[in-house]
């Protein structure tokens, strides 16, 4: 193969983790919520963050697309690199960060607009108007919702069931064509059938996107993720391939947590 600088770069980019956390500490005022966490998020893989309530897993997740910026007393030290670029440098615009790193929330939060407008919203504020229909359809298909809503795109999003609404929120995030999708306990408000559908969807999405999911459901983490980080009291106890974390944990606390002895 002929040498081109581009090809070279591509190879190195693929080996490089898409997100790299280095000694990240997040405080609310003086109270640390996340302490000295270092880990790497692999590209086009699913990484889950597990841990008991209040361990800082949501805080950590929200640090990855700068959603903690809206909490005035939150402050962060350490470094987070997104494809080699500092997420928290002076020059980084949080608005750009969130375009690249999308998010799905605990409770479905569709806008009080039509199904179509919900998906078209992100692209339209960013000035993509051409081919918006195609983009909406593609996003809805990728979120496995198209078949169910194709004939009622202009109905209100609130007419959908909870599980459908959550898939709509995923479609809404996908319409921005992000690299990474953060999911903050996306199934905690859903019934088992809807949960299973979202988990199936995550396997599909993995082909194109990197997913980081926070969950308090250990079975879910074991089922869907390639890598698992176990957080306790804001500290990263263990991080590794999911198989290893669940079957051969290196730490006692991890073993106790994943076998359900506490948490």
């Amino acid at each position: 193969m002929e040498y081109t600088p581009n090809a070279d770069q591509e190879i190195s980019e693929n080996e490089q983790p898409i997100l790299q956390l280095e000694d990240v500490t997040i405080r609310y005022g003086d109270v640390p919520a996340v302490q000295n966490v270092s880990l790497a998020i692999a590209r086009q893989q699913i990484t889950s963050i597990i841990g008991p309530s209040g361990c800082g897993k949501s805080t950590l997740l929200r640090a990855l697309n700068r959603m903690n910026d809206f909490i005035p007393e939150a402050n962060i030290t350490g470094r987070i690199l997104y494809m080699g670029a500092e997420l928290y440098s002076e020059e980084t615009d949080p608005v750009d960060v969130r375009r690249k790193i999308g998010m799905v929330f605990q409770k479905p939060n569709p806008f009080p607009k039509s199904i179509f407008s919900n998906v078209a919203w992100g692209p339209s504020i960013n000035g993509y108007r051409e081919g918006i229909e195609d983009r909406v359809e593609k996003s809805l298909r990728r979120a496995a919702l198209w078949e169910e809503v194709a004939d009622r795109l202009h109905d209100s999003a609130s007419s959908l069931s909870g599980g459908q609404q959550q898939r709509l929120c995923i479609a809404r995030a996908l319409a921005m064509e992000p690299e990474v999708i953060l999911m903050d306990e996306p199934c905690s408000a859903l019934d088992p059938v809807s949960t299973a559908r979202i988990e199936d969807l995550m396997f599909e999405l993995k082909k194109r996107y990197t997913i980081v999911i926070v969950t308090h459901n250990m079975q879910q983490a074991a089922r869907v993720s390639d890598y698992t980080a176990f957080l306790e009291s804001g500290k990263l106890v263990e991080f590794g391939e999911t198989d290893q974390v669940f079957t051969r944990p290196r730490h006692n606390r991890t073993e106790e947590y994943v076998t359900g002895r506490f948490g």
Partner: peptide, 20 residues
């Protein structure tokens, strides 16, 4: 949660306010 949903799509404060 609606505001957060909009911010997470890369909207500015002004867009979140006027369009959501």
């Amino acid at each position: 949660s609606l505001r957060q949903g909009a911010y997470a799509l890369g909207a500015t404060s002004f867009e979140v306010t006027t369009r959501v």
